[in-house]
Amino acid sequence: MSLTVQEIAGLLQTRFPDAVLEVDADSRHPGIRVAPESWHDVALFLRDDPRLAMNLLRCISAVDLHPQPYIDVVYDLLSMRPPVSTGGGAADPWSCAGLVAIRVRLPRERAHVRSVADIWPTANWHEREAFDLMGVTFDGHPDLRRILCPDDWVGHPLRKDYVFPTEYHGIPAATGSAADSAGTGEEH
């Protein structure tokens, strides 16, 4: 029995009436917009409530909405249930009991949201990546440091106003191509 996004939103709205800001059930990526302050409580509810049981956090994506001053963090969740009957149905696959995307809108200049790494351990690395590439800070994360770029990298590359580096530890990076003039703003 698979829950629709509207039903999931209904359950959330009953429990957290102030947290649910917007429900977008009909688009190609149906989801629910949640207030950043209540996100951690909502996440705990999504995982632990037996009707929802969103046990798989598929992906955390950060989207820069420049020139609007916002960054959207999108959490894609999935509920996997084991097959109900045992014995004869031993070869039945697990079923998908619901798919939803939760969106949290953060201001670009101070992008802070509570970490959910204590709820879904997979979020640990996803949040480190969002911090590294987009500059979103996850409060309460056990080890928030860069994961893909080197530790002494400057800037957050996936931001729309990112300036491409011209060199790194003596190795030239500027190539004289369009990316440099678009990104660096410095001429050589």
Partner: peptide, 18 residues
């Protein structure tokens, strides 16, 4: 640099730089 020549901020444009 290959296909990452233009927008690869983390790619060294050729190993002969090293």
């Amino acid at each position: 640099g290959g296909p990452y020549f233009k927008y690869g901020y983390h790619v060294v444009k050729g190993v002969d730089l090293i």
